[in-house]
């Protein structure tokens, strides 16, 4: 039997607080990450992703402290991403209580970080996040720097390469779908899950319960959403009941 599909809320953390939206211009405070993490844990979240969007490096220490405090009170896996550039950054986060770290731009700029990280800490704790945007050739291109920089990399090829280098999971975000609430990019998810033999976390576009079921049927091992959960449009409990009714194995 396969493992249960994981339902993962994603929290954007800026200088120690959860903020709404990923837009740097209009950050609104959405609360204390530890309290929010505890709430999601109680509601049945299978894992949490913290995305550190703190721009200044001195304030990153605050994020380490948040990871520490969350890990002390929340006993489910915790993945932390954002601003990780070195093995030492990874080590610090794992020591603070993160179970996995997620790298995006730095993996593209320095693919050796994937191999060094997985050799040092095991592939299970190295997640590579890929921001994918559909191109005119009918495929998808990898973007970095929070979607601001186009690369020459093809998403499918890059996903394969990441796994070869030792990535234990792929966190796949569709930039086309992100924020639209009209469903995950099913075609993209299917292509990537067929190409790699590690779990793929589908992200970007979830708007209603049906979307989660649809993307699971395309091979996603986990489903991620942010605003849908933050704004209480959908509770994790209701979502899981619905998934179960639709023959998706959930915890």
């Amino acid at each position: 039997m396969p493992v249960a599909i994981r339902v993962i809320p994603c929290l954007d953390v800026n200088a120690g607080r959860v903020v709404k939206g990923t837009n740097f211009i209009d950050l609104r405070d959405a609360g204390d990450p530890v309290e929010i993490a505890k709430r999601y844990n109680t509601e049945g979240a299978d894992e949490l992703v913290f995305l550190d969007i703190t721009a200044s490096s001195d304030k990153r220490e605050i994020t380490l402290d948040v990871v520490k405090k969350t890990a002390e009170q929340v006993f489910i896996p915790l993945t932390v991403g954002g601003g990780i550039r070195t093995i030492d950054d990874i080590r610090k986060l794992l020591k603070a209580g993160a179970d996995k770290i997620s790298i995006n731009t730095s993996a593209v700029e320095n693919p050796q970080l994937i191999s060094d990280g997985s050799k040092k800490f095991g592939s299970q704790c190295i997640v590579v996040a890929i921001d994918a945007k559909r191109n005119t050739a009918g495929s998808w291109t990898v973007y970095t720097h929070g979607g601001r920089t186009e690369t020459k990399l093809d998403v499918i090829e890059w996903a394969k390469k990441c796994v070869e280098l030792g990535a234990g999971e792929i966190l796949l975000t569709s930039m086309d779908k992100d924020g639209t609430k009209d469903g995950y990019d099913l075609e993209l998810t299917e292509h990537v899950t067929n190409a790699v033999n590690v779990p793929v976390i589908a992200s970007g576009g979830a708007g209603k319960k049906e979307h989660f079921v649809d993307v699971c049927k395309k091979g996603a091992s986990a489903v991620l959403a942010a605003s849908l959960f933050h704004f209480k449009e959908l509770s994790i409990h209701d979502l899981k009941s619905y998934m179960k009714e639709n023959s998706i194995k959930v915890r």
Partner: peptide, 12 residues
């Protein structure tokens, strides 16, 4: 068989 390794996640 398409078996994802590592075995990662929630199982019974």
């Amino acid at each position: 068989e398409k078996l994802i390794i590592p075995h990662i996640g929630w199982n019974t």
